[in-house]
Amino acid sequence: MTFSPELEAKFADLITHYPEGRQRAALIPMLMFGQEEVGSITNEFMNEVARRLGLTPMQVDEVVGYYSMLHKKPMGKYHVQVCTNVACMLRGGAELYDHACHKLGLGHKEVSADGLVSLEEVECMGACSWAPAVQVNFDFHHEVTADQLDTILEGLKK
């Protein structure tokens, strides 16, 4: 499996961050950064990471299954995450998520047919004081109203 030169460089650098013989520590960063490029945690990708870190594919699988941001199925090009945890809920997060569902015609962790957008109801992502919060991929949007969400969603381009 081949990666972009940038990602290869990142992987090579990552492995140097940990004590000798403990390169397994690079696993989660490799999966996270790799997922951005590969699109999801595919079997091929897991096997490749396992090979590079001297792990069995099962050991990688154990880790992938644990973390909620590692997806075995591809999410949309734009992954819209709406927080409905308490702080956001108190300021309309749940209604905002419902609005997003209707607007996109998608449910939790569903992907649009064209693969452009996916939706996820997420747990607290650390924007409590500026609630309700939305993340599109890794970009935060604070104090989002339904209208603002519409604007954000309409702005998602192929």
């Binding site: 069995t56 099962m58 154990e62 299954g65 644990y66």
Partner: peptide, 20 residues
């Protein structure tokens, strides 16, 4: 051998076999 592992988490956690 190490052919068994644990995947997923919480109430969904379960034992997984070595080859998917």
């Amino acid at each position: 051998v190490g052919a068994l592992g644990i995947s997923y988490r919480g109430v969904n956690a379960e034992i997984i076999p070595s080859h998917g």
